[in-house]
């Protein structure tokens, strides 16, 4: 009898945490900081693969292998347009200063198996010196944490462009506080934990470049 009680308590505890909780969709991310020949940051290149459930949902009955390019383009244009008010889920900091972003111009989209793929570049409003001697970091996240956006691997965060020689990236894992995890765990599909929840679960990419060669 006692052992049954113990089992029941354990089962109850396991269940107490996740109940229809946020996130409700996932994006596999690859990203890259773009540095021009003067070592200035011009933008962040973003490569998203949506999870198969989300993909099926937005394809609305169309089988993944039968999706028409025109429909995918329309969906992508709509999504990119909606994301404008959210800085394209991107936060960029140079030397501790948040950088404003400019509207995204153009995208690529296609199906990758069961997953919808979307590629775009978020330009910074004004290119800013970010290479040698500067501290550059950025994060790509959904502020509401409805969608969890994570890099597919440590190597999936890159730094590219003519000014990127010798530069390195480091992926900083999120360390969400307990309260945030508990809050997210209690949020169902139609609920919101506010626009500051996702930041606590964001991965940050820091870019360091070698000091100018002698």
């Amino acid at each position: 009898m006692r052992s049954i009680a113990v089992i029941l308590v354990c089962a109850g505890c396991l269940v107490a945490a996740p109940a229809g909780s946020h996130p409700h969709a996932w994006i596999d991310l690859e990203s890259g900081a773009l540095l021009d020949d003067q070592g200035r940051l011009t933008g962040i290149e973003i490569d998203w693969r949506f999870d198969a459930f989300y993909t099926a949902f937005v394809l609305d009955g169309t089988r993944p292998d039968q999706a028409r390019q025109a429909d995918l383009d329309k969906l992508a244009a709509e999504n990119i347009g909606n994301l404008k008010d959210y800085s394209y889920f991107t936060e960029i900091e140079v030397d501790g200063q948040r950088q404003a972003v400019a509207p995204v111009d153009g995208f690529k989209t296609a199906m990758r198996g069961d997953q919808l793929w979307l590629h775009f570049v978020v330009p910074v409003a004004t290119p800013v010196a970010a290479a040698a001697g500067h501290r550059l970091r950025y994060a790509v996240y959904d502020p509401t944490y409805f969608i969890e956006i994570r890099h597919v691997s440590k190597q999936a965060a890159r730094v590219t462009g003519p000014g990127s020689t010798g530069c390195q990236t480091r992926l900083v894992e999120p360390r969400p506080p307990m309260e945030a995890i508990a809050l997210a765990a209690g949020l169902d599909m139609s609920e919101s934990g506010g626009d500051s929840l996702g930041r606590l679960f964001a991965e940050w990419v820091t870019v360091t470049c070698p000091t100018a060669p002698p």
Partner: peptide, 10 residues
């Protein structure tokens, strides 16, 4: 609940 454990659940 230890952070690590709940993060693992998440």
């Amino acid at each position: 609940l230890p952070d690590q454990l709940s993060w693992a659940i998440q």
